[in-house]
Amino acid sequence: MVASFGPIAMAVVIATIFGLLPLGISRLVAPRKPDSVKNAPYECGVETIGPTMIQFKNHFYLYALIFVIFDVEAVFLFPWAVIFSQLGTLALVEMFVFVGLLLVGYAYAWRKGALDWV
């Protein structure tokens, strides 16, 4: 079983080389004449005002949060889906309870406006 994962490690290595190779070639053949104007941040030709790291609204975090919770939930669903045919109706009920509980949280997030983009 481990053997079937060996090619994946090899694929990661090859794909990385595949990305690095053009970068390396480009470094050799492409011109390099940096100057302060060229290397300034591109913000539509206007000088940068204030710090780049501005405060974004926390809404982004709420999305990420709900995403993580549902991602974990989905991972539990995978072994269930694989052996569904071997399990009885009890497993179906267990899964409905599991997802149902999370839907309570989903409904809460919906009502509190965590899913809205304002």
Binding site: N58, Y61, L65, V68, I69, V72
Partner: peptide, 20 residues
């Protein structure tokens, strides 16, 4: 281990919410 990952996800979610 899967349960540990679940707890880790919950911990990260609440922990970062507190930090923010």
């Amino acid at each position: 281990s899967i349960f540990i990952m679940t707890v880790a996800a919950a911990e990260a979610a609440v922990g970062l919410a507190i930090v923010i």
